[in-house]
Every structure is written in C-alpha cells, then in structure tokens.
C-alpha cells in the first residue's frame, strides 16, 4: 500500500501510484477501491483510474473536498495507505459499440480514463468531451487525447475551449454524428443532463455514481440508489448504471446528508493544521 509516486494535477487534485499487487492483478475498468489513510480515518471510496498488473500498481486520483480527502492528498511518496480494499464494484462491460462519446466533468475524467482506454483498445472510436470550472482543472487531457479520435473542451469561465457546459458540446456531437453510446461521469447535475441529452437523440447512456459508502461490500445499504424503480446497492450492483434508469433526483437529495457534520470535521482538521 506504499505510495510510489505523487503528482499534483491541479489545485486540490492529486494523482497517486500505489503499490497494491493483489488489487492490480484483478482490476478492470470501472472498479474502485476503499482506502483508509489512518486508524481513526473514514473508509473512502476512490476509483481505480489506471492499473498495471505487471508492475503491481494502481493509480488513484483524489480530489480534496472534505477532511479525509484533503488529508489523503497530504500523503507523500513513501507514505502508505493503512488499508486498500478492492477491486470493488462491477466492472464496466467493454464491448465493441462503434462510436462512444465520453463526457467527463471535473474529476469524472479519472474514472472515465480506464473505460475509454479499454474501449479504444477494443476498436471503438472515442470522442472525448471534457468540462471543468476553469482551465487549470482540466486534468488528464493528454492521456485522454492519446486514445481519442476527437477531443473538445468547455470551461465555465471560458478560460479554455467553449464557455459553458460540457453537455452543450455533447448536444453538438450528437446532432452531427452517429453515436452508439454515451458515457457520462462527473457531478450529478452534469450526469443527469447528459443522460437527458443522449435520450433526446435516442442514444443509450451509462453513468457512474459516487454515493456515500461505508463498507463497500454490500453489508450496510448506505449506498442504495433507485434504478428502474428498484433499490440497488451502488457498491455491489454499480457503480455504473444505465443512465436513463437512475433516479437522479433522489441521489441529489441524499448526497448532502452529512454536510453539516463534515464541515465540523473539516473545521477541526483546519484548526489542527493551524495549531
């Protein structure tokens, strides 16, 4: 579980290469791990953003948004994670679809990359659309461009590519191209919008959900989501689901459940940083 390489990709976004041979040996696109970085820490799910079975490593990209993810991002080379459990979740079924549009928002490009890479290796044509708040937050563009036939970007402030939402780019692509599948990974509102845009064009879509989780083994039910009117456990049935079947409204409402308490925890963590 040693950290072999650390690389700051953007503000608060860090990429780690972690020695985890058992996990790397079984990893497939779509899998994630649950890590703990210290004894009193939370169990934090992170997507396997790349893996190398031979070298025995996995790549994690972590966005420091709360106490635990910020503390993780302070780990350095030669530090280690206390626990790495995985690979978890159902792998994404990599098939020959034809043309696949990969729509990534913010950090969503990290979980997108292994899927896109595997799809490209199967001979699919990848159209890569990526959006972020601003230019500096457009991460992993080189990796994505290397496997895509076509790439386009959007930023909220217009600092790179189109000003606006990445779903605007999607709408244009779908108007002009015959597309077989859309994969959308990013913030919930972005995924919900991408699913709608794809559906308007009669194209099926896949999304990857990042619910709250505790164990990641199907034991607690804290990760439940409604898909096709049925309760599913994101950690064992997902995290990827057919976008049009997901009840996004419910997930959006469940996400902030712990927000007040997380602020308290983060506040304490900052106090500790200061004193």
């Amino acid at each position: 579980m040693n950290i072999l390489r650390k690389e700051v990709l953007a503000q608060d976004i860090v990429r780690f290469a972690v020695a985890a041979p058992q996990v790397a040996a079984k990893a497939e696109p779509g899998h994630f791990v649950i890590v703990r970085h210290k004894e009193m820490g939370e169990r934090i799910p992170l997507t396997i953003a790349d893996f190398d079975a031979e070298a025995g490593t996995i790549t994690l990209v972590c966005h420091g948004i709360g106490r635990s993810t910020r503390e993780i991002n302070e780990l350095n080379e030669a530090d280690a994670f206390l626990d790495v459990l995985g690979p978890l979740g159902e792998p994404y079924p990599v098939r020959h679809e034809g043309t696949v549009v990969c729509v990534s928002g913010g950090l969503g490009v990290a979980p997108m990359y292994p899927k896109a890479k595997a799809l490209a290796a199967k001979g699919n044509k990848i159209i890569h659309l990526q959006g972020a708040q601003r230019k500096e937050l457009l991460i992993m563009t080189q990796e994505m461009e290397a496997i895509s036939e076509q790439s386009a970007y959007s930023t909220d402030d217009g600092s790179l590519g189109r000003r606006g939402f990445v779903t605007d780019l999607l709408r244009e692509v779908l108007a002009g191209e015959d597309v077989d599948e859309v994969i959308a990974i990013g913030p919930l509102p972005m995924m919900a919008a991408a699913v709608d845009v794809a559906a308007e064009h009669g194209v099926s879509s896949v999304v990857s959900l990042n619910t709250l989780m505790v164990d990641g083994t199907g034991m607690c039910g804290g990760c439940r989501v409604t898909v096709d009117g049925q309760t599913k456990f994101c950690c064992v049935d997902g995290p990827a689901f057919d976008g049009s079947a997901v009840d996004f409204k419910e997930i959006l409402k469940r996400q902030p459940f712990y927000r007040d308490m997380e602020r308290k925890s983060l506040h304490r963590c900052r106090l500790e940083e200061v004193g």
Partner: peptide, 30 residues
C-alpha cells in the same frame, strides 16, 4: 425508505461500532 434519515440497522451499527462514530469528530466517520 430511501429518504435521508433512514438507515439499515447494519449501517447504523457499523458506523458506530466498526467506525466508532460515537467518538466523532475524534474519529472521522459521522
């Protein structure tokens, strides 16, 4: 049943016992 504030007993007890949420914020899990 999926509203905020509905737990399975497993989640409720796991947060408290395994993750020691009863000692939050000393332990990180709320």
């Amino acid at each position: 049943e999926n509203l905020n504030g509905v737990y399975s007993a497993n989640e409720f007890l796991t947060r408290v016992n395994l993750m020691k949420a009863f000692r939050f914020p000393e332990y990180d899990t709320p």
